[in-house]
Amino acid sequence: MMQKPIVLWLCGLMAAGCIFYLAIAVGAVPLKLSDLWVSGTASHMVLWQIRIPRVLLAFGAGAGLSLAGLVFQTLFANTLATPYTLGVSSGASFGAVLMLFLMGSFNQTGWGVPIGAWLGALLSTAIVGFAAMRGLARQKHAMLLAGVAVTFFFSSLILLLQALSSQVQVFQIMRWLMGGVSVVGYRPVLVMLAVVFGCAIFLWSQGRRLNVLLLGDDLAQSKGLPVQALRIRLFISVSLLIGAIVALVGPIGFIGLVIPHAARLIWGQDHVKLIPICLWVGGLVLVFCDWIGRTAFAPQELPVGVITALLGSPIFFALLLRRSAH
């Protein structure tokens, strides 16, 4: 019994080493890791200015999305609830696209897109949170349908903005909506990593409260959990998390669904354990998906959102079938 976690952690570390190596060294242009320490070469520049920030961005985004999915599942007492399925990613996308529309192009928006994404995430979280507190969370499928409605609503608004945009803007919006982790330089990456790991530390500190929340609102409250106050804290931190991620990488789906599901199956329901696991595994999976996107049709690059959707949609469908079979 004691050896299982050690073996799993060793496998996890080896997988992480392989994935980081592939992501940094193998791409359209193969690079040697030894070039990391040889300054003045093109390889050195590509590694430090393009590959490593990209890997860090993918890792932070995957970690944060996976964590947000885990917390949403608990928050809505629904294993299919994620920021993506409940429309929070769409809300954040709308906020970002609105800023882009108002300010001209991505090059001119500065902090406009991140702020717009965060406000959009906050607005859509408030909508689904309101629906949940009005009792919809007790009806599992109704909550998912509410998510579909929120997604359609914000998608329609995005389409409206696209219809009113210039051709260049439409292209930029389309490309951004596919989700991607290409980035040059560290500043935005470090800001996002700070938000993700700041939220992660806060959420980890709430781990035992999240465990009690799994019992459902009434029983959890009878155990001494201040359910409404906790919900508000969780909603704010998850919307902050999603806003920060979507602002940089666009709406990337299914990481937040599949990783927490798998983690719960393997490691049980203790959030004190699940939170670091979801961060680690979610980060690695998105780095891996991005590597596939970069190399599968190299030199053509596929947006990472396409890869996660291609892999995640069948898994989501299988989960729905499994759930209805129960």
Partner: peptide, 15 residues
């Protein structure tokens, strides 16, 4: 009980 999650008996008592 209104839970969607596969808690075990020990988790429930521990809560």
């Amino acid at each position: 009980l209104q839970t969607d999650f596969p808690l075990n008996a020990r988790d429930l008592v521990e809560s």
